[in-house]
Design a protein around this nucleic acid. Structure first.
Lengths: 235, 235
DNA sequence: ATTACTAATCGCCGAGTAA
DNA sequence: TTTACTCGGCGATTAGTAA
């Protein structure tokens, strides 16, 4: 387990700003504050979302503290800009609504088979994981992950998966150390069923890992550098 | 001004249920409670949105009172179902997020020229309206609306416009009576610039009205029953 | 087990106001 | 003007329970 992809969404739990604060983000996003700063007074923001100037100001302060917006106070109006984190929060919301009206999301992209660090075998063999895989994925995975390196368009598409609802694998303690959680997503690699596995803590941005009941590398006759097609559908 | 289209959204202001209640609607929608009832306990709902069983219960009670959900209490679990009104609320949210990430919405549909009741001339001649049209649309409209009757697919698409941000025309009092407000949306009819005008209070569901600086019927050589193509883009 | 009431607490909102 | 603090009040939340 090395790989990644997925989202800036902090912890794969929920970092959701509640109600009214979200309304502020929506207003700023509507005005295009994701790309360029927007000039607004706290009163204007308050009017837009139906609260007082004081409340709006508190929201802005809180959002700044949480790293969701950046502010530079000009004398007359403050320059407000959304951070990438805020855009992720909004995108997560967008995704839940999109799912309601458009149905489960689908995603297809290609990547190249890459060598992992060999850690996959160690992690996937941990009983604490195996029992969960067996119960929640329906199989005991081959002890090794197949890593796929993404480029170009796939690099932009794959992070969207982070907002999907996936199959949760919980972290646990064993042998005096901590094993982190992960989220799995049903996938097909060159048509063969497998799961994309996304560890909660991950640093890489261009590699995604896959597991399956059998050794994908053998069954699909893959070697490093081969291009594979991945198809995913939200659960 | 006779026609309509547009949304069940009660008053064209905002009937927005605040924060936490919306979260409940999202949970229910995610579980498909728009088409068939879903079985959930108040505790489950509370867990899903991160509040206590008591709070969740109060939200459910409030939502039922507001006509956003229907409940039938079984002994073990309550059957919850979203009303069409609730789906409109959710769709409005969806639209604001969609606009953020996908840009202004576009819509094209066709309809047939229809005769109005001739009221358009009277309303559009009211100085209270004319001054607003001139200021906000940039022209003084020809005193008469062109009505277009929608059928089939257009009937499903047009109501989505109700969620768009449009050009507001406020209501006013004059001659001892009340003139209602409306919202205008830039449009093209067979390529010619005009505005779709949607009165706040409107009963018809299959007729939409258009205004323009000149007489559309004359300029486009239209007669009743002719098919016209409408193209709209959100402001 | 549920739903949902009551009571006590908590936290948020907006008024007033300083800078 | 603005931002943003303090404070009083009230609405919302949760714990405890009844049904």
């Amino acid at each position: 387990m090395t790989a990644p992809v997925l989202p800036p969404t902090p912890e794969n739990g929920r970092p959701r700003p509640k109600g009214e604060a979200l309304a502020v983000l929506k207003v700023l996003a509507h005005d295009g504050a994701d790309s360029t700063p927007v000039l607004l007074t706290s009163r204007e923001v308050g009017d837009r979302i139906g609260v007082s100037q004081q409340a709006a100001d508190r929201y802005l302060l809180a959002l700044e503290r949480k790293g969701l917006i950046t502010r530079s106070l000009a004398q007359r109006r403050q320059r407000l800009q959304l951070t990438p984190t805020a855009m992720e929060v909004l995108r997560a919301e967008y995704h839940t609504y999109r799912r309601i009206f458009e149905g489960p999301a689908r995603l297809s992209f290609t990547g190249k088979v890459a060598s992992g660090l060999g850690e996959g075998r160690y992690y996937l063999s941990q009983p604490g994981y195996v029992v969960q895989f067996t119960e929640r994925l329906g199989y005991s995975p081959y002890p090794g992950t197949l890593n796929v390196r993404l480029t170009g368009e796939a690099l932009r598409k794959a992070p969207l998966i982070g907002h999907w609802s996936g199959i949760r694998i919980d972290g646990f303690q064993a042998s005096g150390r901590t094993f982190g959680g992960a989220t799995c997503f049903a996938a097909r690699m060159n048509g063969r069923s497998c799961h994309l596995i996304h560890p909660d803590r991950t640093h890489y941005k261009d590699v995604v890992e896959f597991i399956a009941s059998d050794c994908l590398r053998e069954k699909l006759h893959l070697k490093d550098g081969d291009t594979v097609t991945l198809d995913l559908e939200e659960s």
